[in-house]
Design a protein around this nucleic acid. Structure first.
Lengths: 348, 348
DNA sequence: ATGAAAGCGCTAACAT
DNA sequence: ATGTTAGCGCTTTCAT
C-alpha cells in the first residue's frame, strides 16, 4: 500500500494534478472549480486516506510551518512553563514546534540554531543559555523572526520580551531593607546572562540607594549546588548576613539545604527571598517570599509578536525590533523577619 | 543574499551537483572523490555557510528525520524531565523533536497525532493523557514506531517503557503498614490512566495482604487542587487516617497545604508519602518519603527501542512489541512516624 | 574520479 | 473551469 499522492487521486478521478491540488489545498473557490469536481476529488481523497506530503509542500512553498523553540533546559520548571504555553499557542495557529533543549550549554545552542535553519524554520523563540549572540544574529540576517525570552542580548537588534528583572530585584531588596536588614547577601546565577546581571544590578542599586554597602554577590550558576556551596561559605563568615536573596528558585533550594544542615532557621535566624515563584514555594518549611515572573504574559506576548513578524516576513515587510519588559510582582510569604528599627510591613 | 544550495557551491567550485552532493553528505569515500576536490567543496560550503535543505532531502529520501514527542503537559516536572532527556538523546542521533503539549487533554492528543502523521514523522514517543488508544493504533497500522512512556495501553500492541507502578505503590504502602499504620488513605490522580490504577492496585493489594481493609481511595486528577480538596474532606471524617499516600507530587503539594491549614503536623499528626520524588521534596517543611521513578532509565531505554524500531522499519523488518517495566525505588525521608506496635524501621 | 539527468510531491504561472 | 509545465533542492542510477 503506497502512500496516496495527488497523482494517485488525479488518476483515479481522471483529472489533472492542478485541479486536484487546488481542491485539496482549499483554493478551489479561487479557481472556480465546479462543486461536482470538488466532491469527486474530496471523496477520492477521503477514501484513499490522503495526507499532503509536508516535505513537498515545504520545498515548493519555501515554508515549513514550524518554529523552533530553543530552551536552556526543561528541567527548570520556569522554562518548562514557558515552553508549555508557547507550544500551545503555536499549535493553535497551525505551526509545529521543534524543540531544542540545550542543557544550558552555549555550544549546544549554536548547534541547535544551525539545525533549525537547515529545517527552514519560520521563526524562533529562544531563551538563551549564555551571552553568545552571533548565531542569533545569523538568524536576523537571514530575516528569520526571532523572539528572545527572559534573557536577551543588547548587542544585536533582536526582539525580546522579558521580566523587568531589574525592578523585581530592586523591589524585593528594598523590601528586605525596609524590614531592617542591612547585611543582605545576593546569590547569583550565571553572570554571562543578562537577566542575572540585571537582577544583581537591581540588588546593588537598592542597597546603595539605602546607603548600605553591597554585602556580597556570590555564585556562578543557576543551580542548587551553587546555592548550597555559597550559602555554606556565607555561614562561615564571622560577619554573617541577616538575609539572603537567591536569584532563582533552584539556587534557593540549595541555600535552604545548607541553612538546614547548619541549623539556621528561616526566618528566625535568616531571612530569605527568591526570584521565580515556583509553585512549591508555598509548601516549603517556611513559605518563601519571591519575585513572581509574569510567565503567562511573557509567553502570550512573545507568540503574538513572533506571528506578526512571520506574517510581515512573508509579505516582505521589514520587521521591527520589539523590546518589552514586563513588570514582575512580589509575592509576600513568611520568610522575612523584621529586625532592628527598620520600618516593617509589606511594601506596596 | 539567497540561500546557499549545492548548486551555488557547484558553480563556485566548477564541479557538478553530483560531486558536491557526495562530499557534502559524506559519501565522498564511497565514490572515491579526491582529497583535493573534497577540500575545495568543504571550504566553499563553510565560506558560504551552507546548510542542506531538509525539505528537499526529506522529499527525496522519504524520511523526515524527526520524531514526535507527545506529552500531557510540560508543567509537570516529571514529564518535563522525560522530555528533556528524550530530546537530548534524539538530537544526538540526528533527529529533530516535534513537541506536542496536550494539556492533559485527550482530544488534543488525538489531534497532535494527526498532525504528526501529516508531517511524516518517523517515530513517536508518547506519554498518553488518557485511555484513548485508537489514534495510537492508527500509528501502529501505518507501521510508525511508537513507544509509550509511563502510561500505556494494554488493548493495542504498543511498545511501552514504564515505572513498575504497582510495585512502587505496594512497597511504600507496606512500609507504612510496617510502621504501624492501618488507616492509610490513598489520594489518586486520574483513574482513566493505567499508571494511576496500577498504583491504586498496589496500595489496595498491600492493604489486603496486611489484613487491613482499604481505607479510602479518593480524588480524580493529578493536581494540587484535587489533593487539597480530598485532604480537606479526609480531615472532616471522624475516623481520620493516620497516613496519606499521595499518588503524585502535585497531589502531595495540595494535601500538604490542606494539612497545614488545619494545623495537622507532618509526621507528628499525620504520616505522608508520595510518588515521583521531585527534587523539592527534600526541602519541604518535612522532607517527604517517596517512590522515585527511574526517569533516566526510562528515557534512555525508550529512545534505544524507538531508534531500533525506526531502523527496523527502514529495513522493512517487522518490529517487535516491547513491554518493559522498570522497578522504582523508595527514597526514605522523615515524613513517616512509627505508631502502635508495628515493626518499625526501614524496609529493605 | 566525476557528471548528466531523472524524479521525489507539490504549487503556480501561464495557457486554453 | 481545467490543464501543461517548470521547478523547489536534493540524491542516485547510469554513464564516461
Amino acid at each position: 500500500m503506497k502512500n496516496t499522492t495527488i497523482k494517485t487521486i488525479a488518476q483515479v478521478t481522471s483529472l489533472s494534478l492542478t485541479t486536484v491540488s487546488r481542491v485539496l489545498n482549499g483554493s478551489a473557490k479561487k479557481y472556480r472549480i465546479s462543486e461536482e469536481t470538488q466532491k469527486l476529488v474530496l471523496k477520492a481523497a477521503a477514501k484513499l486516506n490522503y495526507a499532503p506530503n509536508r516535505a513537498a509542500v515545504s520545498l515548493r512553498l519555501k515554508r515549513s510551518f514550524s518554529v523552533g523553540l530553543v530552551i536552556p533546559t526543561l528541567s527548570n520548571p520556569y522554562f518548562a512553563d514557558v515552553a508549555s504555553m508557547v507550544s500551545h499557542a503555536l499549535r493553535a495557529k497551525g505551526y509545529s514546534v521543534v524543540l531544542m533543549d540545550c542543557d544550558e550549554d552555549e555550544n549546544s545552542e549554536v548547534e541547535a540554531v544551525r539545525l533549525l535553519v537547515a529545517q527552514n524554520i519560520e521563526g524562533v523563540i529562544i531563551i538563551p543559555s549564555g551571552a553568545a549572540s552571533a548565531h542569533i544574529d545569523t538568524l536576523l540576517q537571514r530575516k528569520i523572526p526571532v523572539i528572545s525570552i527572559d534573557r536577551y542580548h543588547e548587542d544585536i537588534p533582536v526582539s525580546y520580551v522579558a521580566t523587568h528583572h531589574y525592578e523585581g530585584a530592586y523591589d524585593i531588596t528594598k523590601y528586605l531593607l525596609q524590614a531592617g536588614h542591612k547585611r543582605i547577601a545576593c546569590l547569583q546565577g550565571s553572570n554571562s546572562v543578562v537577566s542575572n546581571n540585571l537582577r544583581v544590578k537591581g540588588y546593588t542599586d537598592a542597597m546603595k540607594a539605602a546607603g548600605c554597602s553591597v554585602f556580597s554577590v556570590a555564585g556562578n550558576s543557576f543551580t542548587s549546588e551553587s546555592g548550597y556551596i555559597e550559602t555554606k561559605l556565607l555561614l562561615q563568615k564571622k560577619d554573617r548576613p541577616t538575609a539572603i536573596f537567591a536569584l532563582s528558585d533552584t539556587i534557593l533550594l540549595g541555600a535552604l539545604k545548607a541553612l538546614e544542615e547548619d541549623d539556621v532557621r528561616v526566618p528566625e535566624d535568616m531571612s530569605v527571598v527568591t526570584f521565580d515563584n515556583s509553585s512549591y514555594l508555598d509548601f516549603l518549611a517556611c513559605p518563601i517570599t519571591s519575585v513572581a515572573q509574569p510567565v503567562n504574559d511573557i509567553a502570550n506576548i512573545s507568540i503574538k509578536i513572533l506571528l506578526e513578524q512571520i506574517e510581515a516576513h512573508l509579505k516582505g515587510t521589514e520587521v521591527q525590533q520589539m523590546k518589552l519588559l514586563i513588570n514582575p510582582s512580589v509575592v509576600y510569604r513568611k520568610s522575612v523577619k523584621k529586625i532592628g528599627k527598620g520600618r516593617p510591613g509589606r511594601l506596596v
